[in-house]
């Protein structure tokens, strides 16, 4: 605050104030504002927590897909319920997501083109999930595939792997 030119008039309009530090009124104002802020922040955090469900009834994240002999060499198999492709090449076998990395549409394997195509915005992926062209920014996500002791394969959707990781079978 700048010093008024005529102190007798303008300062007499204000309440007497302790120039040294906080006045009692300022102190309570700040306490009140702080309390409101803390309460508001708390309410916000609690609201966000309330709005995020803790239990979700979503499909299981790991599942068995049978023995490797179910999948022929040089084939792409679409598992509709899990929305993954099981691709078997001469090198081995891997699992990749069928969900387009662009905006989440379900892609389709086109055997005649040897291509995975997205119906929504025209993205095209190669057999190994890498982007051929189109708006998709990333290759299809690969998931870990494991051989179980009983000879069946298991896919874990929570374990993301690099496209180079292929299960030798």
């Amino acid at each position: 605050m700048s010093e008024p030119k005529n102190p007798t008039v303008s300062s007499s309009l204000e309440k007497p104030e302790d120039k040294e530090g906080l006045s009692r009124r300022d102190f309570f104002n700040e306490i009140a504002a702080g309390a409101l802020g803390v309460a508001g922040l708390g309410a916000f955090v609690v609201s966000v927590r309330y709005l995020s469900p803790n239990v979700l009834f979503e499909p299981p994240t790991n599942f068995r897909i049978g023995p490797p002999s179910d999948y022929q060499v040089n084939s792409v198999t679409y598992l509709a319920n899990q929305e993954v492709y099981i691709v078997r090449t001469s090198d081995g076998l891997f699992a990749q997501s069928a969900i387009c990395t662009h905006l989440g549409c379900i892609t389709q394997w086109k055997p005649e083109l040897e291509m995975i195509a997205c119906p929504c915005h025209g993205s095209k992926f190669r057999k190994d999930g890498s982007v051929e062209h189109g708006p998709a920014p990333r290759p299809l996500q690969h998931f870990a595939v494991r051989m179980m002791p009983d000879g069946e394969l298991m896919v874990d959707l929570l374990e993301l792997v690099k496209p180079t990781q292929i299960l030798k079978v």
């Binding site: 995020s52 979700l56 979503e58």
Partner: peptide, 13 residues
């Protein structure tokens, strides 16, 4: 997106 949908995908929530 999780808050808006109440889940990871579009479902009952």
């Amino acid at each position: 997106r999780f808050l808006l949908l109440g889940g990871h995908g579009i479902g009952e929530n």
